[in-house]
Structures are given as structure tokens and as C-alpha cells.
Nucleic acid binder design. Sequence first.
DNA 1: CGGTTGTTTGAGTTCAGTCAAACCGGGTGG
DNA 2: CCACCCGGTTTGACTGAACTCAAACAACCG
Lengths: 213, 213
Amino acid sequence: MTVRSYVRGQDIVRDGDRPSECCLILAGFAFRYKLLPDGRRQIMAFHTPGDMPDLQSLHLQVTDHGVAAMMPTQAAFISHKKMQVLTGRFPGLLHAFWRDTLIDAAIVREWLVGNGRRDAHERIAHLICEMLLRFKGVGLAPSDTFNLPATQADIADALGLSNVHVNRVLQDFRRDGLITWTNYTVSVLKWDELQVRGTFDATYLHQVHKAAA
Amino acid sequence: MTVRSYVRGQDIVRDGDRPSECCLILAGFAFRYKLLPDGRRQIMAFHTPGDMPDLQSLHLQVTDHGVAAMMPTQAAFISHKKMQVLTGRFPGLLHAFWRDTLIDAAIVREWLVGNGRRDAHERIAHLICEMLLRFKGVGLAPSDTFNLPATQADIADALGLSNVHVNRVLQDFRRDGLITWTNYTVSVLKWDELQVRGTFDATYLHQVHKAAA
DNA sequence: CGGTTGTTTGAGTTCAGTCAAACCGGGTGG
DNA sequence: CCACCCGGTTTGACTGAACTCAAACAACCG
């Protein structure tokens, strides 16, 4: 097992690789993304410490998307061989990993709904709701405030919008007193209303402890 | 194990259920979908005979989306208990199921890219490319022609477009001699050009036999 | 032969994109 | 210590892809 460090923007896993190890985020923030030939980018997930964004490499030879750091980030790498030994010995672990990839997929599906059928305001409200609950679940948002090292352009690429439009929607939400969002720090001021604006329903997160919010 | 029959539009798995069994499509066609409170719909996957759209229910208590029949369809239901016995006895099966859910997720991610960053022409071209390769893989498109029991409104709900716009794009593709699409039968006439128009790259399908096309 | 479902066409609208410039704060080097 | 730069945010003006609404058309079916 090796640990490596990354700076903002650096690839942790490269699209097209054939990894022989899985990575575990130890500290920092990462996202998964795909690029179209002409440079358009779609971000498909945000990852916090404790996540293993790369579990699929255990079964799928070639990686079909990249993982990049959003800020100084440390990741541990565990060889597939060792993973197999571990899961062979502790079948519970195997099911936990599988479950993890299933929740991951559930979140991507919800994003698909957003990019397909929600308008810009709904998408952004929904994303904030999701972040807050997920971050609460892992202790990254003890109050209704959390740190999110994403630029407005990153948010745009996650939600299929332009950075300009993200900016305008955020201003609307600020004007309406729903949130504050400065300096990579997000605070949710009116949770209930934000949920409504985002047509948010937390079922898809499959959280065991229904985090109160 | 029980077998049930469904008509077009009927739910095979209902959103919000707590299933105690997994379903296997035996014949027909199905899709997975979510509805927003006001009725907007997002289709998240199409399924052919042999697929198990519901594998996630093995690990996630409550279903976060529906599965519905696109035409007269038969599905077999296998209890979770039996699934556990099977996978316990044949660990290879367990990994095959996991792998299947991973590919499923990879396809959803690619759809996310489409709905987020591809325009209408690209989305539709991409979907046709994907369908052709997947259907070839399971013998449903021996030539470059296949049956797809989806209305233009279904396609619209899969791609985050309006039915009217889908119609207009299809006319463009027909005019350019890329495809024909009548009576639920799709033929790809210019595979190479269609791939270009859809910025299609088959990596994400993780097909073992690189299906020639 | 009506009724129903799906496709096609036309006209007008809008949400979000593009382009371009101004602004702002933090870091750096002269 | 300040001028400059750079990444990120904000603002304004204009554009356009895709949507909505509404009606016509076509095919199928009982």
C-alpha cells in the first residue's frame, strides 16, 4: 500500500488507464469526470475522504473516466491482489464494497435526472441539498455549513450549465436568503425551502442514519 | 421462482418498493425511470432479455426508481434468499453480478455526460450507437438493424429533450441518410458518420468481444 | 367507422449559452 | 511597499438551441 499526494487539478486516476490497484481518498477532495474530444467536461461525482472512487477497476479492465483532485489531496493505493485477499477473507467487506458502488450508481442516476429534467435552479438547489446530507453523514458538516473546494465552473460542469449561469442562480438563492456561498464555504439557511426548490428527496442516498437536517 | 407477464407501460418494479426478490427479464423490453413530483420523467436505462435491472435490491432496502415494460414482457423473480444461496455457492456468480451492476453504472455515467454536455443531435446519435452495439452483443441486431419499442416521447425522456425536438432531429438524420427509423425498427446506414456525430466511444460499454460494427 | 396513440408541422417563446469586459482579492517579484 | 498578475466572480448585451402550444396527419384497432 502506497500513499501519494496531489495538487488541485492533478489526475489521481487517468481515463484509459488499466489500474492494478484501487485508490482510497485519505484527505482532500476529488471528483470523477469525463472529457469530450473538444474539451467539454462533465463531472460525475464528488468524493470525500474515506471514499474509494475506483472500486470498479476490480472488475473492469480499463478505466472509462478520470479522477482528479480538487485541492491538495492524499490517496492510498491498495493492489487488486490485496483487495482480493481481503474480500476473500472477509466476505462482509466484499458486500460493503459492492453496496458502496451501488449507492454511487444511485447518485449518478439522480444526477442524470437533474441534467435531463430539472432546470438550472432546481439542479443547483438539489446539489446543495445532496452535499449537505452526504457531508453530514461523514462529519464534514456538523452544522448546516460545509467546505466545498469547487469553483463555479466546476459546479457548472457537474450540472451541465455554464459558469455564468451558475453565478446568476447563486445570486438568486442568496437574494432569497436560502444560502450563503463565499470562499468555498456553503451555508444552508433555509433547508426546507431549498429542498422544495430542488425537488429533493433523499431516498436515493440510501443513508442508514436518516440524518436530521 | 415465479414468472409474471406485463403489458406496455406496466410497472415491473415500483419506485419506493422494498423488494424481497430480484427480477430477470425473460422476454420483451423494459426501462428504468424516475418521475418528478410534477410528472416530468427521466428514463435511465433500457433493458433487454437476460438483464437483471433490479440487482441493487440485494443490498439497498428501498428501491429508488421504477422499472416498466415497453411492450408485452415476461420477467422471472428470484427471492433474495435464493440469490444469497446461489452466490454463496458460486462466488463467480457473485462477481458476475457485481460486474453487471458496474457496467450498468458506467452506462448511466455516459448518459449523464450526454444529458449534461452533448447537444440534441449528439445525444440521439450516441444513443443509437450504444443501442446497436449492446444489441449486437446479445444477438438482437445481427445486421445493423434492430427493433426498439420506444416512442419518440420515450427517447425524449431518456435524453432530456422534448418529443417534438426528437422528431426534428430524427428527420435530419434521415435526410442525411444516416439511419432509417420507422415502426420501431432502426437501421444504421452510416455507422462511421453516426459515431462521429454522436462523439461515440465504446470503451464505457466494457464489451469483451469488441463487436465489429 | 370513430377512437386512440404516435408522428409531423408551424409559429412563437424562453431559458440558458456565448462573448467580452470589469471587478476583486491574494500572491509575488521588483 | 506597491504594481502587476492571475484565477475566479460578476455584469451586460446579444444569440440561439430547444421548448411550448396547437393543430394536422397517419396508422392501427376494436
